[in-house]
């Protein structure tokens, strides 16, 4: 059987061309191995061969991303690669970002496995760990001898189409993806065992490390309420009676946008909830208790607020992935801005 084909990407420094003064060189390709590729080739030689090495200056790549990507992509294609390796970049920031960018692009467009290697604090690691398997390395090229075997191990697994193990086992930076599997013992037994270890002061491994939630700075206050256009948004699943767009009762894949221009309040004939996570009786009888259209109309008539926006946006927050609700909000926020909405009241159940 012929060996699998690997294309290797490195920067001007590892390519032996030069340091910072050569960081602006354009991508060039050499047959076979260059620099760190030598050690990598040694480690994977039973399975694969590095057929070409692409060298590109870090500054050039980052200042001409689109052009660099296009040229490099062509080079990888030409060599008919089965696997693309970028780096390792250790703690070199621009090199790391370049490795991540090109590896992600190759994976997406050429649909072949890719691999890189970086120090966890390399900005490229944070930017691309979700899409690219990045082997965790030390912070300088002095750690090359440790990085290569780990990269080779994962490279061989990928080339053979073997299942990739956990980040700890295969030494890559966690991609933040939760995957189910059946354990040997049931959860209750694992809970008891974990407690025994915790009580004894021995080591235990949590099955779910607590996340850090990101934050956004508060916007300045509204200056003029009486001229403000205010929109209502809810995660309480209020929809027109009959749920015309069939928003899911849990784990929603979509949101709804509905016209309330003609409504002075919501009632059991007009609106209901699609949300499956709470007792729906109240919202089905009087949806104002989730989406306060009646009160907003009063405020509008009294001149306390300028206007109630004619559309409300809604989804079910129940079991809906944070990433989905984030995407919904990104999308409809653009519409709200375009419609000149000054502020939003978001209600949750």
């Amino acid at each position: 059987m012929s060996k699998k084909r690997v294309v290797h990407y490195i920067n001007q420094f590892f390519g032996g061309i030069g340091g910072e003064e050569k960081a602006d060189i354009k991508p060039e390709v050499r047959e076979g191995v260059v620099g760190p590729g030598m050690a990598l080739q040694g480690a994977i030689k039973e399975e694969a061969e590095i057929v070409a090495t692409i060298i590109c200056g870090d500054s050039y790549f980052n200042e001409n991303v689109d052009e660099a990507k296009k040229v490099i992509m062509e080079m990888v294609k030409k060599y008919d690669a089965d696997l693309f390796v970028a780096g390792p970049a250790f703690n070199a920031g621009r090199y790391g970002v370049a490795c991540g960018t090109i590896a992600e692009a190759v994976k997406k467009e050429l649909k072949i496995p890719v691999i890189s290697g970086m120090y966890p604090e390399n900005p490229g690691a944070d930017m691309f760990k979700k899409s690219v398997h990045i082997i965790e390395t030390g912070n300088s090229a002095a750690q090359m001898r440790k990085a290569i075997p780990a990269m080779a191990n994962l490279a061989i697994k990928m080339l053979k189409g073997e299942e990739i193990s956990s980040p700890a086992e295969d030494k890559y930076i966690s991609m933040g993806v939760r995957k189910n599997y059946f354990h040997e013992t049931r959860g209750s037994q694992r809970a008891v065992d974990m407690l025994m270890n915790k009580l004894a002061g021995e080591e235990f491994v949590t099955e779910f490390p607590m996340p850090n939630f990101d934050r956004v700075d508060p916007l300045p206050a509204l200056k003029d309420l009486s001229n403000a256009k205010i929109a209502l948004v809810t995660s309480g699943g209020i929809v027109p009676k009959g749920n015309p767009d069939r928003i899911e009762s849990s784990s929603a894949s979509k949101y709804g946008k509905y016209d309330i221009a003609d409504f002075f309040n919501l009632d059991e004939m007009s609106h209901e909830t699609a949300h499956g996570g709470y007792d729906p009786i109240y919202a089905n009888t009087d949806a104002d208790c989730v989406l306060p259209v009646d009160v907003m109309r009063d405020l509008e008539n009294e001149g306390k607020i300028g206007k109630l926006h004619r559309y409300f946006y809604t989804t079910t927050g129940n079991g809906t992935a944070v990433a989905s609700s984030k995407a919904f909000a990104e999308e409809f926020s653009k519409e709200l801005l375009a419609d000149g909405v000054d502020a939003v009241i978001l209600t949750s159940t």
Partner: peptide, 28 residues
């Protein structure tokens, strides 16, 4: 509830004191 692709936040609330967690899987 980490989303169908498993890439989302799993829990609605969190605290660093919860350092010993048993997970019974991603329901999404």
């Amino acid at each position: 509830y980490a989303g169908r692709d498993g890439a989302s936040q799993s829990l609605a609330d969190a605290d660093p004191k919860a350092d010993a967690v048993v997970s019974n899987g991603n329901a999404n």
